[in-house]
Design a protein around this nucleic acid. Structure first.
Length: 455
DNA sequence: ATGTGC
């Protein structure tokens, strides 16, 4: 190890720590150009190369870029959409949930209501959410309340394969599967009234949370470039503790090619979440006569990406490539890329809970800038594998249990519910408590699900 | 995560 590995965990979560994930945290610290520490958030679990919940920052001169530090679902992320509705306005959740389920394509291999043309796809990959808004599916304001305004610089479509394009074309505007979801939630608790007001959130308010990523396109970009970077690791004589850490110097043609293809996939994911936002607004417009302006975006975060950012290292401003894999940016007050009116507050941070458990709205802090390259956790984090979870309970029994707690769940199959059982994940409240107490983000609000659409 | 698997 070139630097120490550091993780954030509580006594309560110690039992969830997998040895393999700790090894992966150590492996990150062996890579060239690693800066200060390899880091793990309290939702750490075993992943491909990097652990999920892992953060690694690398210097531009000596450092590397690794697809294993981003994940297969490039720009998997979460957005929160507000409504003017109060919980008392939503007595019958089943009808509106069914309408959402009917309009948002859900599950593996599903196709969108629109198939993007080749020219559309070029714009989706270079302009991200801007494309969706320009097509009439959203407002200018949506872009302001989105990390990077929903578009990452440096996207070069020449590094995205035809295979990736073919998979991506029919999928813009689809939810996907696994832990991806669309939830109708209610703001249960406000911890920080000033920040909640700045973010446009109040107690009792109905919101919609959308969790999804770059679908088949991002997956294919990752697969394609892993192959290229496996060869590049040998070419540049980078010793790998694990083949899954395939990487290339940031300043190499192979490294730059991955970064530009990754940006294309990241932009696709933002266009995708924006399209799903539009579909959601269509349903609420019909059911409650609400226009898009009455359903503003609270914020949109990515939790699977690598970004070139400036950070203070030993008192010096330093450009770094920060890999966040199952980790969320949590920029504090006075940083750049904060949404309107949030300069003294910090960026909104959205932490989805597991099915049936609370999600959280946090804010970024100065502590995150000092300790974690402006990063925090991304969610609950798995404790049971999908196959283990499936053996514990049937989808139907989980659905019944949640229904008794007033939560309606719609999913393509019982199996997809069983894989995402609440007990397959760490308790989100405990994960959030750790990042709050460590000062790497701060609680603003807690939201509880009322209706869940699982992918 | 994924047209789910060497």
């Amino acid at each position: 190890m070139r630097v120490p590995g550091r993780f954030y965990l509580s006594q309560e979560l110690m039992g969830t720590l997998e040895e393999g994930a700790v090894t992966q945290l150590a492996n990150i610290a062996t890579l060239p150009g690693i800066c200060k520490n390899s880091l793990a958030m309290p939702d750490i679990h075993w992943g491909y190369g990097f652990p999920i919940g892992g953060v690694g920052a690398f210097t531009m001169d000596e450092g590397v870029i690794s697809p294993g530090g981003v994940g297969f679902d490039i720009n998997c992320g979460v957005r929160l959409v507000a409504t003017p509705l109060h919980r008392s306005d939503l007595k019958e959740v089943k009808t509106v949930l069914q309408q959402l389920y009917d309009i948002v394509p859900t599950g593996v291999g599903t196709k969108s209501c629109i198939t993007a043309s080749d020219r559309d796809l070029n714009r989706i990959m270079t302009e991200g959410a801007r494309w969706t808004v320009d097509e009439g599916y959203g407002t200018e304001r949506d872009l302001l309340w989105c990390e990077e305004q929903g578009c990452m610089e440096g996207a070069d479509i020449s590094h995205v394969s035809q295979k990736a394009r073919k998979r991506g074309r029919p999928q813009c505007g689809t939810l996907g599967s696994g832990n991806h979801f669309l939830e109708i939630q209610c703001v249960e608790e406000i911890f920080d009234p000033e920040a909640a007001q700045a973010f446009g959130i109040e107690e009792g308010q109905i919101c919609i949370m959308i969790h999804c990523g770059s679908r088949g396109l991002g997956h294919q970009v990752c697969t394609d470039h892993l192959k290229i970077l496996e060869d590049a690791s040998k070419k540049y004589h980078i010793p790998l503790a694990d083949k899954q850490l395939a990487c290339a110097p940031l300043k190499s043609p192979e490294g730059e090619a991955y970064l530009s293809a990754m940006a294309c996939a990241a932009n696709y994911a933002w266009a995708n979440r924006q399209m799903i936002t539009h579909l959601t607004r269509e349903v609420f417009s019909r059911a409650f006569s609400l226009c898009a302006e009455e359903m503003p975006l609270v914020y949109d975060v990515t939790h699977n990406v690598a970004k070139i950012e400036e950070h203070m290292v030993d008192g010096k401003r330093t450009m770094l490539c920060v890999h966040r894999k199952g980790a969320t940016r949590a920029f504090g007050p006075g940083t750049h890329d904060l949404p309107p009116g949030c300069d003294t507050i910090g960026q909104p941070v959205i932490i989805p809970g597991s099915m049936g458990s609370s999600s959280y709205l946090l804010k970024g802090t100065q502590g995150a800038m000092e300790k974690t390259f402006g990063s925090t956790c991304h969610g609950a984090g798995r404790v049971l594998s999908r196959s283990q979870a499936k053996k514990m309970a049937t989808g139907e029994s989980i659905q019944e249990t949640l229904a008794r707690n007033g939560i309606t769940v719609l999913a393509p199959s019982g199996g997809s519910i069983a894989e995402e059982a609440p007990n397959a994940y760490k308790p989100s409240g405990e994960v959030v408590k750790v990042v709050h107490e460590a000062g790497i983000s701060a609680r603003v609000a807690r939201l509880n699900p009322i209706g869940v659409i699982k992918g």
